[in-house]
């Protein structure tokens, strides 16, 4: 009102734009060899999930009583055959699709729902926070495996219900992380300064909170993908998730368990895939975490 700004306006085109925060994260991530390896494996798995079904050497559903449990390295079946004589390699390739789907989808939904609840709880504080977080704690008190089995059991078998139950399992942990990260950001001076400018909660969350909390929550969520895969496999193993004859690693592990004494290597293959996938996702998330850590 009283201030008259007489300095000539700067030429807009001349503004030096700094590389943003994310380009720095990307650079640090590229330098992290372990994380890059993990990213390569994850990329391979995703490609397998998308296109595996089109390049299988043999029909993964084609069973043959004569070719049951052939060992690794058999002519025509490089990774042997399962208990119904189906080609292991083809089934593992096609299984990536369902397994990854079951691993990623629940985490994605839980990320969206849990973040919203957690950010609201963390930003508002007070009684609303207490109400939300105590409710979340009730779910959190159950071991995740038990909760997943109980929910799936109650909802009934099937992929859709397994996804719902896994989503419900992951909402509480994501919500807790979102709440604590948001509460931290909320106490920073820049949020105070935004409040002092008269901005309402919505504007502050949109401009100042989201950008600072979504990254850390996302990193945490990626670390849950491995857990989700293992839980989904467990549900399939118990007959609560994917139904036979669909190839899914957890289910394959289940059906091959009878062969553990005759062909232990073949029985272990689906487990190995689960192991590689989950460890890759974990290392990827560790890499993201350290790449996002700005030390000043």
């Amino acid at each position: 009102m009283n201030a008259s700004l007489t300095i000539p306006t700067t030429n807009v085109a001349a503004i030096e734009q700094s590389p943003g925060y994310w380009s720095g994260v990307f650079k640090r991530f590229l330098r992290d060899r372990v994380a890059m390896c993990a990213a390569a494996v994850v990329l391979l798995l995703v490609l397998l999930a998308l296109f595996g079904a089109f390049v299988t050497p043999v029909d993964p559903y084609q069973s043959s009583m004569l070719k049951r449990l052939k060992p690794i390295g058999t002519e025509g079946f490089p990774l042997g055959t399962d208990e119904l004589g189906r080609d292991m390699m083809s089934r593992l390739m096609v299984g990536a699709r369902l397994s990854l789907f079951m691993g990623i989808t629940p985490v994605l939904f839980a990320f969206l729902i849990g973040s919203v609840i957690g950010i609201i709880a963390g930003y508002t504080g007070g009684w609303l926070n207490t109400a939300i977080m105590r409710t979340v704690d009730v779910f959190y008190a159950f071991p995740s495996v038990l909760l997943a089995i109980a929910l799936s059991g109650a909802l009934g078998a099937g992929i859709g219900n397994a996804l719902i139950s896994l989503t419900l399992v992951f909402i509480p942990p994501i919500c807790r992380v979102a709440e604590s990260v948001t509460a931290q950001v909320r106490s920073r001076d820049y949020v105070e300064a935004a409040r002092a400018s008269g901005a309402n909660a919505f504007a502050i969350i949109r401009t100042h909170v989201l950008g600072n909390v979504l990254g850390p929550i996302f990193v945490y969520a990626t670390s849950l993908i491995a857990v989700s895969m293992i839980l989904a496999s467990g549900l399939s193993f118990l007959g609560l998730g994917v139904k036979p004859p669909e190839p899914e690693w957890g289910l394959m592990l289940n059906t091959l368990r009878t062969a553990i004494y005759t062909q232990p290597w073949i029985a272990a293959l689906p487990g190995l895939m689960i192991f590689i996938t989950s460890i890759s996702f974990n290392m990827l998330s560790d890499g993201l975490r350290s790449a996002m850590d700005v030390k000043q």
Binding site: Y190, A193, A194, S197, N200, N212, Q296
Partner: peptide
């Protein structure tokens, strides 16, 4: 208006300098 002690913590690390300054007027 107020200026805080900790110059680092009082600026949003994800916003450019001009976006931080322009936030207040936009609110109004």
């Amino acid at each position: 208006q107020m200026v805080f002690q900790d110059s680092y913590s009082s600026l949003n690390p994800r916003l450019t300098v001009e976006a931080s300054i322009a936030f207040g007027p936009q609110v109004h």
